[in-house]
């Protein structure tokens, strides 16, 4: 665990030029004018970012492989996997809607996490990897479009809506998706823009 070197940056929210002092572990730097979080030094942020991304990707794969939810109503039993539930929308001619759902709950988080894994590997190699900057830009820009946690609340709400009609059971993949969401949030918490870009920069110049 090391302190982060000082640097000058411009607040993204209010355009103030701020000189960030050296940050000890667990220190955070806020903008003095608009109190935006500018930089933070979380312990072992880079190892965590890498490890949690890999864990999240594994759980996402599991979340796609097994039954997600199952329904039991008057003798009919039916279970769907996550890809199947998107496919139902697709097959009902709601192509655009299914694309939005697929992107926000599977596609975007997967690309985002793959980008973070790629960048994490690149900054550990002395020679770097091609396209690291592009991968990082993509991952960071995708963050608002990943909606795993919102999907989980959506499942909860649908449950309450269905519960009077039929018995609904949670499948294996549901729990995998919960774990995936937790790891995804942990990845996002541990990304510090300033430091990630400094590391990427260091590899490129080194």
């Amino acid at each position: 665990m090391t302190a982060l070197a000082a640097s000058r940056m411009v607040c993204h929210e209010c355009d103030l030029v701020v000189d960030i002092p050296e940050l000890a572990v667990n220190d955070k730097a806020y903008c003095p004018r608009c109190s935006y979080l500018l930089a933070s030094n979380r312990p072992n942020a880079f190892s965590k970012m890498f490890a949690y991304s890999v864990a999240a990707l594994i759980f996402l794969a599991l979340a796609n492989a097994f039954p997600f939810l199952s329904l039991n109503a008057s003798g009919h039993e039916q279970s769907v996997t996550l890809p199947e539930s998107v496919a139902v929308l697709f097959n009902e001619d709601h192509v655009l809607l299914s694309a939005i759902v697929f992107a926000t709950i599977i596609g975007v988080p997967a690309v985002l996490l793959l980008g973070i894994v790629y960048v994490s590997i690149a900054i550990r190699l002395p020679q770097g990897l091609p396209g690291t900057r592009r991968a990082l830009r993509w991952s960071l820009n995708l963050i608002p479009w990943s909606m795993a946690e919102i999907f989980l609340i959506g499942i909860l709400v649908s449950f309450i809506k269905i519960v009077s009609l039929a018995n609904v059971a949670l499948g294996m993949s549901f729990w995998a998706y919960v774990a995936f969401t937790v790891f995804l949030i942990l990845v996002l918490i541990n990304i510090d823009r300033r430091e990630v870009w400094r590391r990427v920069q260091a590899v490129r110049n080194g």
Binding site: L69, S85, M147
Partner: peptide, 10 residues
């Protein structure tokens, strides 16, 4: 949107 998606799928 997700609620509709889940209900339709199930």
């Amino acid at each position: 949107v997700f609620v509709v998606g889940i209900l339709v799928a199930l």
